[in-house]
Design a binder for these strands. Structure first.
Length: 123
DNA sequence: AGATTGACTGCAT
DNA sequence: CATGCAGCCAATC
């Protein structure tokens, strides 16, 4: 079952679990994956295709903000998508107490050999 | 086939 | 509050 030894793919699977109107941090995803680092998460998302079904826009940095990308309007699009889902930005930051993801449901964690992660805390 | 590069975070000082 | 440092995959050239 676990054929996806590729870290990037595992990360993308986890990101796919984030429900609409909710946000997760790079560190949180890495923590759930268990054998990765926040940086790996960013790298994994950076390689996604445009028509990928992975909700990459729901992944933000630990400060509750959108990480700037080298170039392109990507960050603006990300914020727009989140606001469409009801996520509110205050001072360019998201309130994790309201929109922070609590992590995948236990059954999913077990089925995917992943680890539970604490909800991100406001900084 | 080796070098380069890219969406970050936590902890110590 | 600012700065430094370790962590370490995969696509591209």
């Amino acid at each position: 079952m676990t054929k996806d030894r590729r870290v990037y793919h595992r990360i993308q699977e986890i990101v796919s679990q984030i429900p609409p109107g909710t946000v997760a941090t790079y560190g949180q995803i890495a923590s759930i994956e268990g054998n990765s680092t926040p940086r790996m998460v960013g790298y994994a998302l950076a390689t996604l295709d445009e028509d990928s079904h992975v909700p990459w826009h729901r992944v933000i940095n630990a400060q509750g903000g959108i990480s700037p990308r080298g170039s392109g309007p990507g960050s603006s699009i990300q914020r727009e998508r989140l606001e469409e889902e009801g996520v509110i930005f205050i001072e360019n930051r998201v309130d994790f107490d309201r929109f922070g993801w609590a992590g995948p449901e236990p059954p999913w964690l077990e089925a995917n050999s992943a680890y539970p992660a604490p909800r991100p805390r406001n900084r």
